[in-house]
């Protein structure tokens, strides 16, 4: 099936808390999704959802939530729990894709225990929790690479909290270089249904076009009411993979050819 048929496709992206959660180049993820859709004749419409805004679980094909400053997290966490949790969860359970980065990822887990031992409850979408082990423990900062579905993901991480996955959680990838979820068990990120949580920014999607396209394929399928990810027209991603490989080389890892669609098919 071609992605320009049967109807002119529109993906509706809900961007959660764009004013509060935007510190680590998360705008790059939105720019990347928008452009990669546009290059294929798909329209991506971004709907900002701010503090106080209700979520219609059927109104969106994709959710995105980024990372923010500490000052903003409390207000956002409260709003997430009180106003949005039930409907976001309903949408994800029904198969709507979601990408959560850094602070946004932490908000969707069970809780965040800060350096003083105070717990900030999350919404428990992901079976995982985050513990800040005190100011004397070094932050997880630096370039990071993962293996993901036979390919690699590269990015930059900067988090004080360590995230641990519960029994029901599947990690997004395995750490090849860097810290990942907690600098201990080599896991990075989490997947639940079509929801992805990760610490990778940099921004994440520009240098990982295969992940960007996975998310677009899921969102497009959702927009069309289909269950299998949509087939997408390949794009000339040479520059994306060159930038990706610069980082793999820097981290002493073997470089990657452009992953074939077969390698990425589930």
């Amino acid at each position: 099936m071609n992605d320009t048929t049967p109807t002119a496709p529109v993906i509706r992206l809900a961007h959660l808390y764009p004013d509060q959660l935007n510190v680590y180049g998360d705008r790059g993820n939105i720019i990347t999704l928008t452009q990669r859709c546009q290059w294929r004749g798909i329209t991506l419409r971004v709907f900002p959802l701010d503090v106080g805004d209700a979520v219609d679980p059927d109104a969106y094909d994709l959710f995105f939530i980024g990372g923010g400053q500490d000052k903003e997290q409390g207000e956002v966490a409260r709003d997430m729990r009180d106003v949005k949790a039930a409907n976001v969860r309903a949408a994800i359970d029904a198969g709507t894709p979601l990408l959560a980065v850094c602070g946004g990822y932490q908000l969707l887990c069970h809780y965040y225990r800060d350096a003083e031992g105070e717990e900030l409850p999350g919404i428990g979408l992901f079976d995982a929790w985050t513990i800040h082990k005190g100011k004397q423990v070094a932050r997880c900062i630096g370039n990071v690479a993962l293996s993901w579905e036979g390919a690699t993901l590269v990015g930059f991480e900067n988090h004080g909290g360590r995230t641990y996955l519960g029994e029901r959680a599947t990690p997004l990838g395995r750490v090849l270089a860097g810290h990942g979820n907690n600098s201990e068990d080599k896991t990075e990120g989490v997947i639940y249904k079509n929801a992805y949580g990760t610490y990778l920014h940099g921004s994440l999607l520009p240098k990982n076009p295969h992940l960007a396209d996975r998310i677009i394929a899921l969102a497009l399928a959702h927009a069309r009411g289909e269950s299998a990810p949509a087939a997408l027209t390949p794009l000339p991603d040479d520059l994306e993979w060159q930038a990706h490989n610069v980082m793999l080389r820097r981290l002493g890892l073997p470089t990657t050819d452009r992953p074939t669609p077969a390698a990425l098919a589930r």
């Binding site: 998360d26 790059g28 370039n143 930059f156 920014h201």
Partner: peptide
């Protein structure tokens, strides 16, 4: 700064 994600902002 080792984090270049700012270019996307």
């Amino acid at each position: 700064g080792e984090d270049v994600s700012w270019i996307w902002d």
